[in-house]
Design a protein around this nucleic acid. Structure first.
Lengths: 137, 137
DNA sequence: GAATAAAATTGTAATCATTACAAATTTTCT
DNA sequence: AGAAAATTTGTAATGATTACAATTTTATTC
Protein backbone atom coordinates (compact mmCIF):
# COMPACT_ATOMS: atom_id res chain seq x y z
CA UNK A 1 0.00 0.00 0.00
CA UNK A 2 1.12 3.52 -0.78
CA UNK A 3 1.75 5.06 2.63
CA UNK A 4 1.92 8.69 1.55
CA UNK A 5 -1.59 9.03 0.15
CA UNK A 6 -3.07 7.02 2.96
CA UNK A 7 -1.61 9.10 5.76
CA UNK A 8 -2.35 12.29 3.89
CA UNK A 9 -5.96 11.19 3.66
CA UNK A 10 -6.29 10.25 7.33
CA UNK A 11 -4.71 13.55 8.32
CA UNK A 12 -7.16 15.40 6.07
CA UNK A 13 -10.09 13.49 7.54
CA UNK A 14 -9.08 14.37 11.11
CA UNK A 15 -8.59 18.00 10.11
CA UNK A 16 -12.20 18.12 8.97
CA UNK A 17 -13.51 16.41 12.10
CA UNK A 18 -14.35 13.21 10.31
CA UNK A 19 -13.85 10.08 12.31
CA UNK A 20 -11.38 7.46 11.19
CA UNK A 21 -13.95 4.71 11.32
CA UNK A 22 -13.23 1.20 10.23
CA UNK A 23 -15.24 1.45 6.98
CA UNK A 24 -13.46 4.65 6.00
CA UNK A 25 -10.02 3.28 6.69
CA UNK A 26 -10.73 0.07 4.82
CA UNK A 27 -12.06 1.97 1.82
CA UNK A 28 -9.03 4.24 1.82
CA UNK A 29 -6.74 1.25 2.13
CA UNK A 30 -8.46 -0.36 -0.82
CA UNK A 31 -8.15 2.70 -3.03
CA UNK A 32 -4.49 3.14 -2.13
CA UNK A 33 -3.63 -0.48 -2.76
CA UNK A 34 -5.72 -1.38 -5.80
CA UNK A 35 -5.18 1.57 -8.02
CA UNK A 36 -7.19 0.19 -10.88
CA UNK A 37 -10.05 2.71 -10.80
CA UNK A 38 -12.56 0.37 -9.14
CA UNK A 39 -16.32 0.78 -9.27
CA UNK A 40 -18.36 0.99 -6.07
CA UNK A 41 -19.61 -2.51 -6.75
CA UNK A 42 -16.10 -3.93 -7.01
CA UNK A 43 -15.13 -2.33 -3.74
CA UNK A 44 -18.26 -3.66 -2.10
CA UNK A 45 -17.71 -7.23 -3.24
CA UNK A 46 -14.06 -7.25 -2.19
CA UNK A 47 -14.37 -5.38 1.10
CA UNK A 48 -17.44 -7.29 2.14
CA UNK A 49 -15.24 -10.36 2.66
CA UNK A 50 -13.20 -8.86 5.46
CA UNK A 51 -15.87 -6.49 6.74
CA UNK A 52 -19.18 -8.33 6.37
CA UNK A 53 -21.30 -5.59 7.89
CA UNK A 54 -20.18 -3.01 5.33
CA UNK A 55 -23.05 -1.69 3.29
CA UNK A 56 -23.09 -0.25 -0.19
CA UNK A 57 -24.55 3.01 1.04
CA UNK A 58 -21.50 3.47 3.26
CA UNK A 59 -19.25 2.96 0.27
CA UNK A 60 -21.08 5.67 -1.63
CA UNK A 61 -21.20 7.98 1.36
CA UNK A 62 -17.51 7.58 2.03
CA UNK A 63 -16.47 8.03 -1.58
CA UNK A 64 -18.50 11.22 -1.82
CA UNK A 65 -17.03 12.51 1.42
CA UNK A 66 -13.51 11.77 0.18
CA UNK A 67 -14.28 13.46 -3.14
CA UNK A 68 -15.60 16.47 -1.24
CA UNK A 69 -12.24 16.78 0.51
CA UNK A 70 -10.42 16.44 -2.82
CA UNK A 71 -8.90 13.10 -1.82
CA UNK A 72 -10.66 11.05 -4.46
CA UNK A 73 -11.61 11.82 -8.03
CA UNK A 74 -14.89 10.46 -9.39
CA UNK A 75 -14.47 9.35 -13.00
CA UNK A 76 -17.62 9.51 -15.07
CA UNK A 77 -16.53 8.38 -18.48
CA UNK A 78 -18.19 4.98 -18.58
CA UNK A 79 -21.72 4.67 -19.88
CA UNK A 80 -23.43 3.64 -16.68
CA UNK A 81 -21.18 3.47 -13.63
CA UNK A 82 -18.64 5.68 -11.92
CA UNK A 83 -15.06 4.77 -11.14
CA UNK A 84 -12.98 6.13 -8.29
CA UNK A 85 -9.38 7.29 -8.40
CA UNK A 86 -7.13 8.02 -5.43
CA UNK A 87 -4.70 9.82 -7.74
CA UNK A 88 -6.01 13.35 -7.97
CA UNK A 89 -3.12 14.92 -9.90
CA UNK A 90 -4.09 15.80 -13.47
CA UNK A 91 -3.64 12.85 -15.80
CA UNK A 92 -5.42 11.09 -18.62
CA UNK A 93 -7.19 7.73 -18.72
CA UNK A 94 -7.06 5.16 -21.46
CA UNK A 95 -9.64 2.41 -21.63
CA UNK A 96 -8.90 -0.74 -23.59
CA UNK A 97 -12.00 -1.88 -25.41
CA UNK A 98 -10.73 -5.44 -25.51
CA UNK A 99 -9.64 -6.26 -21.96
CA UNK A 100 -11.52 -3.41 -20.29
CA UNK A 101 -8.43 -2.26 -18.41
CA UNK A 102 -7.99 1.39 -17.57
CA UNK A 103 -4.50 2.86 -17.80
CA UNK A 104 -3.20 6.21 -16.60
CA UNK A 105 -1.07 8.46 -18.72
CA UNK A 106 0.59 11.82 -18.27
CA UNK A 107 -0.13 14.70 -20.60
CA UNK A 108 2.57 16.89 -22.14
CA UNK A 109 1.40 20.32 -21.11
CA UNK A 110 -1.52 21.80 -19.25
CA UNK A 111 -4.23 21.23 -21.84
CA UNK A 112 -4.84 24.77 -22.92
CA UNK A 113 -7.77 25.24 -25.26
CA UNK A 114 -7.90 27.76 -28.13
CA UNK A 115 -9.63 31.11 -27.81
CA UNK A 116 -13.18 29.88 -27.14
CA UNK A 117 -12.69 29.49 -23.42
CA UNK A 118 -10.98 32.83 -22.85
CA UNK A 119 -12.54 34.33 -19.75
CA UNK A 120 -13.96 31.00 -18.61
CA UNK A 121 -12.98 29.68 -15.21
CA UNK A 122 -11.65 26.17 -15.71
CA UNK A 123 -11.87 24.11 -12.54
CA UNK A 124 -11.46 20.56 -13.74
CA UNK A 125 -9.86 18.95 -16.77
CA UNK A 126 -10.63 15.43 -17.90
CA UNK A 127 -8.94 13.55 -20.68
CA UNK A 128 -10.19 10.16 -21.69
CA UNK A 129 -9.01 7.96 -24.55
CA UNK A 130 -10.40 4.74 -25.86
CA UNK A 131 -8.69 2.10 -27.95
CA UNK A 132 -6.74 -1.13 -27.64
CA UNK A 133 -3.83 -1.57 -25.27
CA UNK A 134 -0.42 -2.92 -26.23
CA UNK A 135 -1.03 -6.33 -24.67
CA UNK A 136 -4.32 -6.88 -26.52
CA UNK A 137 -3.02 -5.78 -29.92
CA UNK B 1 -30.85 23.87 -39.79
CA UNK B 2 -27.39 22.91 -40.96
CA UNK B 3 -27.98 21.37 -44.37
CA UNK B 4 -24.59 19.76 -44.86
CA UNK B 5 -24.67 17.40 -41.90
CA UNK B 6 -28.28 16.53 -42.48
CA UNK B 7 -27.86 15.51 -46.11
CA UNK B 8 -24.63 13.72 -45.31
CA UNK B 9 -26.49 11.74 -42.69
CA UNK B 10 -29.41 10.82 -44.94
CA UNK B 11 -26.97 9.78 -47.67
CA UNK B 12 -25.10 7.64 -45.18
CA UNK B 13 -28.30 6.04 -43.96
CA UNK B 14 -29.37 5.12 -47.49
CA UNK B 15 -25.92 3.74 -48.22
CA UNK B 16 -26.32 1.36 -45.29
CA UNK B 17 -29.82 0.30 -46.32
CA UNK B 18 -31.46 2.10 -43.44
CA UNK B 19 -34.84 3.58 -44.22
CA UNK B 20 -35.37 7.32 -43.96
CA UNK B 21 -38.32 6.92 -41.67
CA UNK B 22 -40.09 9.86 -40.13
CA UNK B 23 -38.69 9.31 -36.63
CA UNK B 24 -35.14 9.10 -37.97
CA UNK B 25 -35.46 12.24 -40.04
CA UNK B 26 -37.01 14.18 -37.19
CA UNK B 27 -34.30 13.08 -34.79
CA UNK B 28 -31.61 14.04 -37.29
CA UNK B 29 -33.29 17.38 -37.88
CA UNK B 30 -33.36 17.98 -34.15
CA UNK B 31 -29.69 17.18 -33.67
CA UNK B 32 -28.70 19.39 -36.61
CA UNK B 33 -30.77 22.32 -35.45
CA UNK B 34 -30.36 22.25 -31.68
CA UNK B 35 -26.66 21.70 -31.30
CA UNK B 36 -26.71 21.94 -27.55
CA UNK B 37 -25.82 18.31 -26.79
CA UNK B 38 -29.33 17.24 -25.79
CA UNK B 39 -30.17 14.24 -23.65
CA UNK B 40 -32.50 11.54 -24.92
CA UNK B 41 -35.15 12.83 -22.56
CA UNK B 42 -34.93 16.38 -23.93
CA UNK B 43 -35.30 15.11 -27.47
CA UNK B 44 -38.24 12.97 -26.45
CA UNK B 45 -40.11 15.82 -24.76
CA UNK B 46 -39.55 18.22 -27.65
CA UNK B 47 -40.14 15.84 -30.54
CA UNK B 48 -43.15 14.28 -28.92
CA UNK B 49 -45.05 17.51 -29.57
CA UNK B 50 -44.87 17.26 -33.32
CA UNK B 51 -44.70 13.48 -33.52
CA UNK B 52 -46.92 12.19 -30.71
CA UNK B 53 -46.44 8.52 -31.51
CA UNK B 54 -42.68 8.72 -31.10
CA UNK B 55 -41.44 6.46 -28.32
CA UNK B 56 -38.36 6.74 -26.18
CA UNK B 57 -37.11 3.38 -27.32
CA UNK B 58 -37.04 4.67 -30.89
CA UNK B 59 -34.98 7.64 -29.79
CA UNK B 60 -32.44 5.35 -28.18
CA UNK B 61 -32.49 2.92 -31.11
CA UNK B 62 -31.97 5.70 -33.61
CA UNK B 63 -29.22 7.41 -31.67
CA UNK B 64 -27.35 4.14 -31.35
CA UNK B 65 -27.78 3.43 -35.04
CA UNK B 66 -26.47 6.89 -35.91
CA UNK B 67 -23.54 6.44 -33.54
CA UNK B 68 -22.81 3.10 -35.17
CA UNK B 69 -22.48 4.87 -38.53
CA UNK B 70 -20.26 7.53 -36.99
CA UNK B 71 -22.84 10.26 -37.52
CA UNK B 72 -23.42 10.97 -33.85
CA UNK B 73 -21.09 10.98 -30.89
CA UNK B 74 -22.38 9.75 -27.55
CA UNK B 75 -21.00 11.89 -24.73
CA UNK B 76 -20.69 10.12 -21.42
CA UNK B 77 -19.22 12.71 -19.13
CA UNK B 78 -22.24 13.47 -16.98
CA UNK B 79 -22.85 11.43 -13.86
CA UNK B 80 -26.00 9.69 -14.91
CA UNK B 81 -27.19 10.46 -18.43
CA UNK B 82 -25.72 10.53 -21.92
CA UNK B 83 -25.70 13.48 -24.29
CA UNK B 84 -25.63 13.31 -28.05
CA UNK B 85 -23.54 15.38 -30.44
CA UNK B 86 -23.97 15.69 -34.20
CA UNK B 87 -20.51 17.21 -34.46
CA UNK B 88 -18.16 14.28 -34.69
CA UNK B 89 -14.94 16.15 -35.44
CA UNK B 90 -12.52 16.08 -32.49
CA UNK B 91 -13.24 18.87 -30.04
CA UNK B 92 -13.49 19.49 -26.33
CA UNK B 93 -16.53 20.13 -24.15
CA UNK B 94 -16.81 22.59 -21.33
CA UNK B 95 -19.63 22.31 -18.81
CA UNK B 96 -20.61 25.34 -16.76
CA UNK B 97 -21.41 24.25 -13.22
CA UNK B 98 -23.63 27.29 -12.71
CA UNK B 99 -25.91 27.43 -15.75
CA UNK B 100 -25.39 23.84 -16.84
CA UNK B 101 -24.59 24.87 -20.40
CA UNK B 102 -22.19 22.82 -22.47
CA UNK B 103 -19.81 24.64 -24.80
CA UNK B 104 -17.58 23.29 -27.54
CA UNK B 105 -13.98 24.29 -27.91
CA UNK B 106 -11.19 23.44 -30.30
CA UNK B 107 -7.94 21.97 -29.08
CA UNK B 108 -4.53 23.24 -30.15
CA UNK B 109 -2.90 20.06 -31.35
CA UNK B 110 -3.81 16.42 -31.54
CA UNK B 111 -3.66 15.55 -27.86
CA UNK B 112 -0.56 13.44 -27.83
CA UNK B 113 0.15 11.68 -24.56
CA UNK B 114 3.61 11.07 -23.15
CA UNK B 115 5.39 7.76 -23.50
CA UNK B 116 2.92 5.60 -21.54
CA UNK B 117 0.64 4.95 -24.51
CA UNK B 118 3.38 4.11 -27.00
CA UNK B 119 2.21 1.07 -28.91
CA UNK B 120 -1.40 1.57 -27.86
CA UNK B 121 -4.02 1.98 -30.57
CA UNK B 122 -5.94 5.17 -29.81
CA UNK B 123 -9.37 5.17 -31.38
CA UNK B 124 -11.19 7.91 -29.56
CA UNK B 125 -10.13 11.02 -27.69
CA UNK B 126 -12.36 12.85 -25.26
CA UNK B 127 -11.60 16.10 -23.55
CA UNK B 128 -13.98 17.45 -20.95
CA UNK B 129 -13.58 20.53 -18.79
CA UNK B 130 -15.69 21.79 -15.94
CA UNK B 131 -15.91 25.28 -14.50
CA UNK B 132 -17.86 28.50 -14.83
CA UNK B 133 -18.60 30.16 -18.13
CA UNK B 134 -17.94 33.80 -18.95
CA UNK B 135 -21.58 34.78 -18.67
CA UNK B 136 -22.01 33.27 -15.20
CA UNK B 137 -18.80 34.72 -13.78
C1' DG C 1 -16.11 5.89 33.36
C1' DA C 2 -21.19 6.38 32.66
C1' DA C 3 -24.61 9.32 30.39
C1' DT C 4 -25.74 12.00 26.57
C1' DA C 5 -25.26 14.14 22.12
C1' DA C 6 -23.51 13.90 17.56
C1' DA C 7 -21.86 11.40 13.70
C1' DA C 8 -21.70 7.36 10.97
C1' DT C 9 -23.57 3.10 9.29
C1' DT C 10 -27.06 0.03 7.75
C1' DG C 11 -30.95 -2.11 5.10
C1' DT C 12 -34.75 -1.27 2.47
C1' DA C 13 -37.22 1.09 -0.73
C1' DA C 14 -37.33 4.67 -4.32
C1' DT C 15 -35.48 6.89 -8.47
C1' DC C 16 -34.26 7.27 -13.01
C1' DA C 17 -31.72 6.39 -17.40
C1' DT C 18 -31.33 2.75 -20.33
C1' DT C 19 -32.31 -1.86 -22.35
C1' DA C 20 -35.01 -6.21 -23.40
C1' DC C 21 -38.59 -7.96 -25.70
C1' DA C 22 -42.69 -9.20 -28.07
C1' DA C 23 -46.53 -7.28 -30.59
C1' DA C 24 -48.00 -3.99 -33.98
C1' DT C 25 -46.94 -1.01 -37.74
C1' DT C 26 -44.47 0.57 -41.69
C1' DT C 27 -41.45 -0.05 -45.47
C1' DT C 28 -39.38 -2.71 -49.10
C1' DC C 29 -39.30 -6.20 -52.45
C1' DT C 30 -41.40 -9.36 -55.74
C1' DA D 1 -51.33 -6.26 -54.03
C1' DG D 2 -49.05 -9.51 -50.95
C1' DA D 3 -45.19 -11.45 -48.45
C1' DA D 4 -40.94 -10.60 -46.08
C1' DA D 5 -37.98 -7.59 -43.71
C1' DA D 6 -37.19 -3.65 -41.08
C1' DT D 7 -38.82 -0.35 -37.83
C1' DT D 8 -41.48 1.34 -34.15
C1' DT D 9 -43.99 0.99 -29.96
C1' DG D 10 -45.37 0.16 -25.04
C1' DT D 11 -44.45 -2.23 -21.14
C1' DA D 12 -41.64 -4.44 -18.12
C1' DA D 13 -36.91 -5.37 -16.50
C1' DT D 14 -32.27 -3.90 -15.18
C1' DG D 15 -28.87 -1.80 -12.57
C1' DA D 16 -26.38 2.09 -10.53
C1' DT D 17 -27.21 5.44 -7.30
C1' DT D 18 -29.84 7.96 -3.71
C1' DA D 19 -33.36 8.82 0.06
C1' DC D 20 -34.49 7.86 4.44
C1' DA D 21 -35.46 6.22 8.97
C1' DA D 22 -33.71 3.11 12.39
C1' DT D 23 -29.69 1.36 14.59
C1' DT D 24 -24.98 1.46 15.95
C1' DT D 25 -20.71 3.71 16.82
C1' DT D 26 -17.99 7.54 18.23
C1' DA D 27 -17.23 11.81 20.67
C1' DT D 28 -18.32 14.85 24.47
C1' DT D 29 -19.69 16.17 29.02
C1' DC D 30 -20.20 15.53 33.72
Amino acid sequence: MEKTKYSLATRELKKHKKSLSNPRLKILEYLCYYRDHPTAEQMYVDLHKELPTLSKTTIYNTLHALAELGLVKILNFEENKARYDIITEEHGHFKCQTCGGIFDFQVEQKLIPKGELLGYKIMERNLYFKGICKKCL
